[in-house]
Nucleic acid binder design. Sequence first.
DNA 1: TTGTACGCGTTATCAC
DNA 2: GTGATAACGCGTACAA
Lengths: 324, 324
Amino acid sequence: MESVAKLAGVAPTTVSRALNHPDKVAQKTRDRITQVIQQTGYVPNLLAGGLASNKSRLIAVIVPSLVNIVYAETIQHFAKPMKEAGYQVLQGEVGYDLEEEEKLIAAVLSRRPDAIFLTGIHHSNNCRRQLLAANIPIVETWDVTPTPLDIVVGFSQEAVGKQTADFFYEKGYRKFAIVSAEDHRATLRNASFKKTLAAKGIENVAVSIVPGISNLELGRHAAAKLFDEGLHDSLIFCSSDTLAHGVLTEAQVRGISVPEDISIVGFGDQNFAAFTYPALTTVRIDRATMGRLSANALLCRLNNVDVTEKVIDLGFEIVVRDTA
Amino acid sequence: MESVAKLAGVAPTTVSRALNHPDKVAQKTRDRITQVIQQTGYVPNLLAGGLASNKSRLIAVIVPSLVNIVYAETIQHFAKPMKEAGYQVLQGEVGYDLEEEEKLIAAVLSRRPDAIFLTGIHHSNNCRRQLLAANIPIVETWDVTPTPLDIVVGFSQEAVGKQTADFFYEKGYRKFAIVSAEDHRATLRNASFKKTLAAKGIENVAVSIVPGISNLELGRHAAAKLFDEGLHDSLIFCSSDTLAHGVLTEAQVRGISVPEDISIVGFGDQNFAAFTYPALTTVRIDRATMGRLSANALLCRLNNVDVTEKVIDLGFEIVVRDTA
DNA sequence: TTGTACGCGTTATCAC
DNA sequence: GTGATAACGCGTACAA
């Protein structure tokens, strides 16, 4: 920066200003500086800038998995407005383990992010303490709670379980099963789903859990297990559209008709859900809005604009197509 | 750090050493310091550390798309060893536009990453200059070239096109079509595929291009267009497994038998490919190894270990299953 | 509108 | 094994 200043015949301060507050520098001076920057290929050092200004222009994003497309989509929609506002995203993958999250968060906070985006509302105590101590805007997502760390944007997992059970019960279904990943939020939905059914006198819900990630293969395996156990005439509530697609495929391979012999409900309404054959009935989660509103809330905080709603419940929608 | 030092009764220097070179500090002193850090919840400032040491412990990763799972997977495998070596990943999404890449790279370089991971080997001149000027280890991926910026780990797009055409020609196919995303690397494969067929006297290859991203829906649309135009008895070469899955679904919906009436070849061998019905014939790309070797190469450079192979061609494999 | 002087929190160097 | 000191490259209050 010093050399740029010299070449432009100004003080370093002026170069800094030309970059960060262009309106506070005379047109002519600014032009001269930009030209020198072009020629020299000067790249500002944001490490130094961040240290001096106490603003890193970095937003930390914590997700369970980079390869789970539903999180990737949320982040994409989150990152766009952030990028436009001049922030970069530092992404951390954390698995579904609370202790791992704690470590990652410590590592990430040492970069002094200006704000942080969290997936889920369950964190270890240590984690909560660190987060609060960082004293930066925080948005928690993919769930809701009356007591967020700062702001929460999501939907109620319990409500999904309950309303889905109610909805399909009223549609006339009396036999139910669950295919689910071993994921905290899915577990909440399942518990609520089963509880709701139990209240209606339906106690034996067959459950097939797949470990870790959701993919087509695991969906097929889980379904195969249920079918081998003699499951029929049931509605299978899946923890993701991907698993549901696997269940659908396995049914097809075995000549089991959907929705005549077996009904299937996915979760997420990913972009392929409307285009499987038959088209997948599912629970729509508005991931784009979740990302957008999260960004919005953080940007308000960062710009010292009052955030009126600290708890944003996006809700969800049961989308009936052809599999149930 | 200063307060930690005071509480532990040492100089700040010693705290820094205890953190970064623990072996250079007496056991007892170290224990005292770690204890104080626990109590106070001190979080080091990597911005300041980076500025002082000229090492950010940050690796920049540039990908076309966060939601394209094949890139996400590569990065996941890349990030793991990097994380274990104490580096964090700063991710940048760039679309398929060269100019956008240039801007993003400038933004990312201002964080002073210790190394950079690039997708593809085609960059604007400005971009190459900036990259070279940064004077850090660079790995380019998803393609090969005899003249990498630094290191390249990938496979030849042309070879994929050629060998796939040869292979299925020899299997007896004489009619071909292409379903492809509007993606630079896919375009290279397609050109090579068509050129190889042309050399065998096969000139009219029906092509259906989908804009931007690959998903099941677009695969179905592209296939629908081809089927509407009367395509039959052909082998459809797709630019991704996802598109191929869409083509497969559209065939199914229309009662077109696969592989009797139409054959389908995907690209990537994603984890669902073996589990579609019928199972997808495809071209396997070893994304895990690509990520791993990229990390390995960068770590060698970062540790001043000689990198013998600057061009690593991973190759690929045609995996014959049931759709062709 | 521009420049001066200082400090941000850490690490490298050198001395002890 | 430990401490003092000087950078690292920039932003900002204040002065001009």
